[in-house]
Nucleic acid binder design. Sequence first.
DNA 1: CTAGTTGCAAAGAGTTTGCATGGCG
DNA 2: CGCCATGCAAACTCTTTGCAACTAG
Lengths: 129, 129
Amino acid sequence: MQKYSTKQRRALLDYLKDHADETLTVDDISRALSSDGVSRSAIYRNLSALESNGAIKRVTRNGTKKIFYQFSGCDDCHGHLHLSCTKCGKTFHMDLAATETLAHDVLRESDFELDKGNTVLYGICSDCK
Amino acid sequence: MQKYSTKQRRALLDYLKDHADETLTVDDISRALSSDGVSRSAIYRNLSALESNGAIKRVTRNGTKKIFYQFSGCDDCHGHLHLSCTKCGKTFHMDLAATETLAHDVLRESDFELDKGNTVLYGICSDCK
DNA sequence: CTAGTTGCAAAGAGTTTGCATGGCG
DNA sequence: CGCCATGCAAACTCTTTGCAACTAG
């Protein structure tokens, strides 16, 4: 799996990287890559592969039943908690030290080992307030 | 909307309340209520209504594409952050004071207004460690 | 009685899969 | 050249909806 580097795979990854602060639906991606000749099945297959890799992750937004995808393989993401604005959909990275403190507090207060890579804090960002 | 109290609606709410610490799929619910003669459409319609009410919420779990539902209208839920174990799927309530402190810290550190009702912290609970 | 609610079955939306073709290495 | 990946279309799964029958108030 993931042995060849095809133009579809590259186009997908590039697009996800370029929009790492946004949450994207398959439709968003498909629309953006249709001009590059990337089929829907290629998108689905590659998204699944990338997700098992941990290169991207699946996110939900507020009251929708929709699934959003987001790149999370960048350096900024490593060990940082994600803050997702439910208004604009943008993602922010919590400061590394603050993340550590928070995770530590949760462990101490609730005896709960926080999975930083899988947790998203929802709320309103400073721009949208 | 939600004007009458039907036996289907009551059965659904009772079931959700009785399993407020679990995350349930529509299949789980349907299976459990089939003996009470609750149809799938009734479940879907009532879940939607309850969700807009804020009585229940939609949750995702780890690597699945599945949608889970969970009762969140109980007193325990009000103002408390939810901790969801990605191993057993159980939900825990973070202490009220700890929740407040955490929300306050996030606001101070990242200028981000945490939506406590919509945020779920994922990780491993003490039982599963 | 009257309007909200249900069940059924059909329609829709989103995702996955089989198979032949095409392209990376 | 061999094997993985792609595209297409069909198959599937999950959810929504129209409509007639039912029922709570």
